[in-house]
Every structure is written in structure tokens, then in C-alpha cells.
Computed example of a mutant assay.
Amino acid sequence: MPEIKISPDPNRKVKLDAFDRLLTIMDELRENCPWDKKQTLETLRHLTIEETYELSDAIIENDLDEVRKELGDLMLHNVFYARIASEKQAFDIADVLNGVCDKLVERHPHIYGDVEATDEQTVKENWEKIKLKEKGNKNPSVLGGVPTSLPALVKAMRIQEKARGIGFDWEKKEQVWEKVEEEMQEFKAEFNVDKSENINKEKAQQEFGDLLFSLINYARFIDINPEEALERTNKKFIKRFQFLERESAKDGKSISSMTLAEMDEYWERAKWHL
């Protein structure tokens, strides 16, 4: 292994002591707290998902103090899972940490081996190839590592990233945009009808899915995270709508009895204030 140079960390002992303190507290809670004693891998699962979304919210809001707190919650969950697993004699926190360290060394041969990688894309391609090799015959598909339970938008991103990792991708963003326009025209031609006739919902759903997939692909090419972009738009809409509710109430109006034109007036004001 080549010699790796890193800057000395004057706070390394403080960090190790803090982690040791967390492990000690986890042991104490697991052995003495009625709630902590009852928890299982399954009961913690939905709480971990909730904490992950809370971390995501804090990151989008750029609230670093909240990011710190939510990272702490997730760190607790990691330690909790490892503690439960150790009781089952399956693994402990040392196995978890050594496992991820081994994986990082294995998947960074340009740092810990003799592979050349001078740009981000080459690193990603090597990563996916190594992952595929690690799976062996268990799940040889490049897409096998994409969790089935991921939200559809995030799953589309991961599918596209993994396909690109082995070279299956468009060459230029202009090609991707042409695909977006093609999918848009197909959808518009078939379902943007003036007549009030029923449409084939199943076919419309398929075409709309193709359109979304192509838009997500284009976002990737111009380095936009579509999940984050959509969530920022969600938050913007919520703030403006709540402004509409709040300001109309100040004027003695009930939002349920207002016309669309009246609501639009407050909406335009919200765009200036928020």
C-alpha cells in the first residue's frame, strides 16, 4: 500500500472520547431504561427513516445547528443497531466500522492501490465496477444495489447514476434534452386533447413516467439534484400558501369562501415578500 499523507488532527482524542462516551451511554440505557430495553431492529427502523428526513430538511434549510443535532440522532441509531446485533452475537460496532473501512480501501484503488483516476467520473466508474465484482453471482446486475423501497424519484436518479458508472449513458446534454422534448411531444400529442373525452389512464401514466425519467436524466447532466429541487419548490409553495392564509385572515377573509382571483392577489404579494 502506498504511503498516504494526511494532516494531523489535534482533536482526534476528543473525538474518540466522545464516541466512547456514546457507546457507554448506549450500554447503560440498553441495560437500565425500560423503553430502550424493549427496542428491536424492527421498532427502530421507522424512527431512523424519520430522522433521516429530518436531517434532509435541515440540510436543505442550511441550518447547521440542526444538521449537527440530526447527525447525533442518526449516530445514536447506528450505535443502537450495532448494540442489538451484538446481543444476537451477529456483529458489533467494531465490525461495522472495520467493514466500512475495508470497503473504502477496496473501492479507492487510486488512493490505496496502483489504479489511475484523475477525475470524479473515473472514480465513480471504478466504484461501480468494483461493487459489481464484489457481488459475484449473488446479484450480478449493475442495478441490483438500488433499494426497491427507495422513493421513485430518488430511485430514478440512482438507476441512471449506476448505468452511467459502467458507461451506459448519453454523451452530451443536448441529446438528453432532445429526449425530453420527444417525450413531451408524445405526451402532449396523445393526452393534451381539447375534447372532454376519457383518456387511456394506464398509457398516460406510462408516458408521463417516461417524461419524468428523461427530465431527471437531464437534471443529472446539468448537475441539479431533482429531489432537492422539487423539495425546495415544495417548501416555497408552502411558505407562500401560508402567507396567503395568514394575510387573508388579517383582512377578515375566509380562504374557503374566497374566489381564485382574490387568492391570486395574495399569492402575488407572497412572491414579493418571500
Score class of each variant (00 low, 15 high):
N32P: 11
P8K: 08
R158T: 07
I84E: 07
D20A: 12
I60C: 04
T52E: 10
G113E: 07
I224A: 06
L16I: 06
Y53M: 10
E66C: 13
L29P: 03
Y218V: 09
W272Y: 14
V154W: 05
Y218E: 07
E171Q: 12
A261D: 14
N62Y: 00
D95S: 14
K172A: 09
D17C: 01
I159F: 10
F187D: 02
L47H: 15
K38D: 15
S56P: 01
I6N: 03
D210S: 13
T259N: 08
D20H: 05
V123F: 00
R12A: 09
E120P: 00
W177T: 03
V123Y: 03
V123T: 04
K15L: 06
K129T: 01
F19M: 14
E128M: 09
Y81D: 09
E106W: 02
Q205W: 14
E66V: 04
K38Y: 12
E262C: 04
E106V: 09
M26I: 15
L274K: 05
K179G: 00
K201H: 13
S56A: 15
E178L: 12
N62D: 11
T43N: 05
T122V: 01
Y81A: 04
Q39F: 09
I159D: 09
L215G: 03
M263D: 00
L22R: 14
H77P: 01
N234G: 05
Q185V: 12
R12C: 12
Q89I: 08
L44K: 03
H77C: 08
A270Y: 07
K179F: 05
N225P: 11
L153W: 01
Y266I: 02
T40P: 05
E181H: 08
P2V: 02
E181L: 10
Q89M: 10
W170I: 11
I111A: 04
A270G: 08
F19T: 04
D9I: 01
T40W: 08
T40Y: 14
E42I: 15
T48H: 06
K162V: 05
E202G: 02
G99Q: 04
K172S: 10
L71P: 00
R164W: 11
A249L: 12
P151D: 13
K239N: 11
L215Q: 05
I4N: 02
N217E: 15
N98K: 05
N126C: 09
S196R: 01
D92V: 02
L215F: 03
K37Q: 13
N98Y: 06
K124V: 07
E54Y: 09
E120V: 08
K188V: 03
K133S: 13
L153R: 04
A219T: 10
K103Y: 14
K129R: 14
S149L: 00
E171H: 12
G144N: 05
E231N: 14
A156P: 01
L29G: 00
G113R: 00
K129V: 05
M157C: 10
K203C: 04
I111W: 03
A90E: 12
E183A: 08
E190W: 06
K155R: 15
R30E: 06
R68W: 08
D119C: 11
E120W: 04
E54H: 04
R68K: 13
F237T: 11
L143A: 03
K239F: 07
E202P: 00
W177G: 00
K138G: 01
I111P: 02
S141N: 12
E28D: 11
G165T: 08
L104G: 01
E197T: 15
V146C: 07
